[in-house]
Amino acid sequence: MPADPIPHGATAAGAGTTGGAPQRLAQAALRDLPWEVGVAKPDAAVVVDGITRTFGGLTAVSVDHLEIQRGGITGLIGPNGAGKTTLFNLLTGFDQPDTGTWSFNGRSLGKLAPHQVARLGVVRTFQLTKALSRLTVLQNMLLGAQGQRGESFLRALVPGTWRAQEKANTEKAMELLRRFKLDAKKDDFAGTLSGGQRKLLEMARALMSDPQVVMLDEPMAGVNPALTQSLLGHVKDLREEGMTVIFVEHDMDVVRDISDWVVVMAAGKVIAEGPPESISQNRAVVDAYLGAHHDAPLTVEDEDRVLAEVEAQIAREESRDEPGSSDSSEGTGR
């Protein structure tokens, strides 16, 4: 639980007064919730219960209960090593937990492979992009389309069974590339794109499957400022289209700009939840980032001890600089 929970009914000033209708709906749904770990959401798309994942003796994730509001943008933040990416891996089938259950729209995602999770409508991107560098940008996009008839060996021998679908997928891919301003690169190998363009390509490819939940792992990492603004706009557009977005980010300016709700992790646990404005006010969050006693006043005994240590250090340095000292003699070659 947070060290300083906000009473039930506390709200963020001005919530829901700006932005498009989906943003206002998401903020309105979250407005009157208490700022408490594990708080129930009015319309949860993803629910996590008792998930743990250990590697040897290290507990990477230990989440008792977490709900993600449908149609909103949820920021997942925390120090390096907090377990954010591991949690992403567990929810999307890239790893399996030691204990616990998790569900999407009431359906359990346990034991499902990543492609099965994606077919249900939960897709993700990666901190290190997974574009296939020796395929063109357009070919990368077409890989994201689901239910392609031509993937069947027998149907592949009969072009009439899949040609119309492939044409429709190509048109959809080009529409997305135009939206992400990558249409001019459609015939370029993905390996020639910049880091920021690869992030755009990965997000665009994820949309080829018409997902309901999009999970973005540090989408702004390594992206130049010009493309950062473009990516921010695209993330907001996902919400405007009714998708649920969960993203990992370290830049708090980005988190405050686009998040409807923020979840904070530290040492594998969720230590705080609330709207973006609440996070900087939470003592548990400040301690997780800066240390539990970073601003605690020193006692008189502590002050005397520190002063004595400093004076002793100064005395040692002065003695080394005095003529005739052993250090001084060594320095002159005697």
Rank of each mutant, 00 (worst) to 15 (best):
residue 3 A to H: 10
residue 5 P to E: 04
residue 9 G to P: 01
residue 16 G to C: 10
residue 17 T to R: 15
residue 29 A to H: 11
residue 39 V to P: 02
residue 48 V to F: 02
residue 49 D to Q: 13
residue 51 I to R: 02
residue 56 G to K: 12
residue 60 A to G: 00
residue 66 L to F: 05
residue 68 I to L: 02
residue 73 I to A: 09
residue 77 I to F: 07
residue 81 G to V: 05
residue 82 A to Q: 03
residue 82 A to P: 06
residue 83 G to D: 00
residue 86 T to S: 13
residue 86 T to F: 09
residue 86 T to N: 05
residue 90 L to N: 07
residue 93 G to P: 04
residue 98 D to M: 00
residue 98 D to R: 07
residue 107 R to L: 08
residue 111 K to L: 04
residue 116 Q to H: 13
residue 124 R to T: 01
residue 126 F to C: 10
residue 136 T to R: 03
residue 140 N to F: 00
residue 145 A to V: 13
residue 156 A to G: 13
residue 156 A to V: 01
residue 158 V to T: 11
residue 169 N to R: 12
residue 169 N to L: 08
residue 174 M to D: 08
residue 175 E to F: 09
residue 179 R to W: 15
residue 180 F to C: 10
residue 180 F to I: 05
residue 181 K to C: 06
residue 182 L to E: 02
residue 185 K to I: 03
residue 196 G to A: 04
residue 202 E to P: 05
residue 209 S to Q: 04
residue 214 V to Y: 02
residue 222 G to I: 03
residue 230 S to Q: 15
residue 234 H to F: 14
residue 236 K to M: 14
residue 236 K to T: 10
residue 239 R to I: 06
residue 240 E to V: 08
residue 245 V to M: 04
residue 246 I to W: 04
residue 248 V to Q: 05
residue 261 W to K: 00
residue 265 M to C: 11
residue 267 A to N: 15
residue 275 P to M: 05
residue 278 S to N: 05
residue 283 R to N: 05
residue 285 V to H: 01
residue 290 L to S: 04
residue 291 G to R: 01
residue 293 H to P: 01
residue 308 A to H: 15
residue 309 E to Q: 13
residue 319 S to E: 13
residue 320 R to H: 10
residue 332 T to H: 14
